[in-house]
């Protein structure tokens, strides 16, 4: 683990408030995740990878953009580890970097359709951009 990665791991732990050591590796989060197939690293792997300090891999993974924030893993985790909080923290680490917004404002118009509610646009902006 490089110095930078160690600092990143600590930041992820701090802003997520997650205690990865409570995990008993049951896999219920990944058994429950509606976006499992869309993810490169799955919710249970976020827990062990954050613990090992492998944050950069997670930051480069498409998993952080396909988490639906449905809170199913948070609700069903028997150990109150709540992996979605880690996914959010890694995502925040990415978009807070200069020029790393996942969703750029000028790209939005082409993504809209006539029925799309404001809620979707605001949500995506909050999740994907700073």
């Amino acid at each position: 683990m490089t110095v930078n990665e160690k600092e990143l791991a600590e930041r992820v732990i701090r802003i997520s408030g997650v205690n990865t050591k409570k995990c008993m590796k049951c896999g219920k989060c990944s058994g429950t995740c509606p976006s499992f197939e869309e993810m490169e690293y799955h919710p249970h792997q976020f827990v062990s990878m954050v613990e090992k300090g492998q944050i950069k891999k997670l930051m480069e993974s498409k998993s952080i953009w396909t988490c639906l924030s449905c809170f199913a893993c948070i609700e069903r985790c028997p150990r109150s580890v709540e992996p979605a909080k880690l996914i959010e923290a890694v995502r925040v680490c990415v978009i807070r970097q200069q020029g790393e917004n996942h969703l750029k404002a000028n790209a939005v118009p082409e993504k809209l359709d006539e029925n799309m509610p404001q809620q979707a646009i605001v949500s995506a902006f909050r999740k994907y951009s700073k």
């Binding site: 976006s35 924030s69 449905c70 969703l103 809209l112 949500s123």
Partner: peptide, 11 residues
Amino acid sequence: ECCGGYVALED
């Protein structure tokens, strides 16, 4: 179970 949420904007 989730409808897919805001990810609709992207995918």
